[in-house]
């Protein structure tokens, strides 16, 4: 039921509250913006933008959290990545460690390497900052880990 057509329904939906007992232990914290996400975003849907990739990153603050390491999972993500974009992003936010600039051939069996990729992809979070369209300079703010990619009507 989502008939928001009548005012009565509207009031009901807007005012209803679901009370859930608070959990005493939280295993995780609010998810912020991952470099994996940055690797997947473009601004090419903007008017006048041809490639719009990669987006620039301006960081206000980042957070590092420990995430369980699964080498098989990381090996599956790597072919979907633009490696040079990930490397540059990690460099930009000072989390490069000694991640190699070139992707090694047999990374599936290189646990140390996969662990570094895991760290950069899933453990480093951008909390506040902005993403920047490389062609127009349009800034997309990231507040508390949520990038705001909405465009104005005159931008599409």
């Amino acid at each position: 039921m989502r008939l928001g057509l009548t005012p009565a329904f509207l009031v009901k939906i807007v005012s209803s509250v679901v009370l859930i007992p608070a959990r005493s232990v939280h295993k995780s914290e609010l998810v912020k913006m991952k470099l994996l996400t940055h690797n997947m975003l473009t601004s090419k849907s903007m008017k006048g933008v041809t490639v719009g990739y990669p987006l620039g990153i301006n960081v206000v603050d980042i957070k590092v959290t420990e995430v369980d390491f699964n080498p098989e999972f990381i090996s599956r993500i790597i072919p979907k990545l633009d490696w040079s974009v990930l490397w540059k992003a990690a460099d930009t936010i000072g989390q490069l460690d000694d991640l190699p600039k070139e992707l090694s051939q047999e990374y599936e069996n290189d646990n140390d390497f996969l662990k570094k990729v895991h760290h950069v992809l899933l453990e480093v979070d951008i909390v506040n900052g902005e993403l920047v369209c490389p062609e127009t300079g349009r800034k997309f703010p990231i507040n508390n880990g949520i990038p705001n990619m909405l465009l104005n009507e005159d931008e599409v």
Binding site: I20, R23, H26, K27, S28, E29, L30, V31, M33, K34, L36, T37, M40, L41, T42, S43, K44, S45, Y53, V67, L122, N144, G145, I146, P147, N148, M149, L150, L151, V156
Partner: peptide, 26 residues
Amino acid sequence: KATQMTGELNATAIQPLCMDLLGQFK
């Protein structure tokens, strides 16, 4: 923000983005 909080409440990692459909993904 609600999605982000629901993810947290259930100890899952969901990446929220404010976007019109999926226009800015590769």
